[in-house]
Amino acid sequence: MTPPLVEVRDLKMHFPIYAGILRKQVGAVKAVDGVSFDILEGETLGLVGESGCGKSTCGRAVLRLYDITDGEIVVDGRAIGGEDQRSLRRMRPTMQMVFQDPQACLNPRMTVGAIIGEPLVEHSGMSRAERTARVEELMDKVGLNRAFINRYPHEFSGGQRQRIGIARALALNPKFIVCDEPIAALDVSIQAQVVNLLEELQDSLGLTYLFISHDLSMVRHIADRVAVMYLGKVVELAPRDALYDAPLHPYTEALLSAVPEPDPAKAGQRKDRIVLQGDVPSPANPPEGCNFCTRCPKVMDVCREIDPEFREVQPGHWAACHLHDTE
């Protein structure tokens, strides 16, 4: 069996909190607190969760856009958890990112050609003519008109801007792309266009995606396997159909039942909707025991004391919940 393209083990990303006149560290925001998963070559792993659960931080940490607190990351056979940024540079062409806000991630003073070509300037020895040819090829690939190569980002619509971001990520023929909410800022009819584009590119280029989103229905569409995060931890990880048809963790259940169904007949009969009470606790001060114990409808005494272990409950289906303890 081929080893997975991306292996993440016990990844931790804590942001220190300083207070007082001496700026002493008084605590840490545990944005990502012990996350482990694998992504196989050519597959899409969906990462879902509510805002503030650490899913974006997790995506950025996997690409080492942060200096991580602890843990191991292996991408394409190379451990990058402890590497310094200088040696990481040589790894960057393999792993790229598509950002959430296509408005904010494109430099308004650069032309589209310059934006898409910038990775080529940085990482390849291409001549100017070669670069232009490559940029034009990329624009074709993502469905942008070549004639627009000298235009500026503000001349494009949201969906087209996201295509620019995707073309830039593809410039260096990466193997692994982290898509951080690539469709959240787009309209429904444009979302479908971008998602289809990502899927086509995956088929033709054999890309591997970590697809971060809060849109559970879109993740069901695009992902092969799905990880659910809550308060810095992955609470459930399973193949798509298993997760959506038979979720094991009460948080996944609640999350799925909260998604409105675009069908009035189904919406009417869904009396079993689980409405979670209260808000997500602060990641600087997570509760004792299981992180979800303050809102869990099935909470037991043990949940308030012992943090459940993240283990394989069924083959390929992982969950961190005391409901599935064997003893």
Partner: peptide, 22 residues
Amino acid sequence: LLKTIPSVSGERAAKLQVIEGQ
């Protein structure tokens, strides 16, 4: 519009329907 949205239950389409253009 109704066809472009995926759902969390029921059939999963192989490809999303799109409305071309802007």
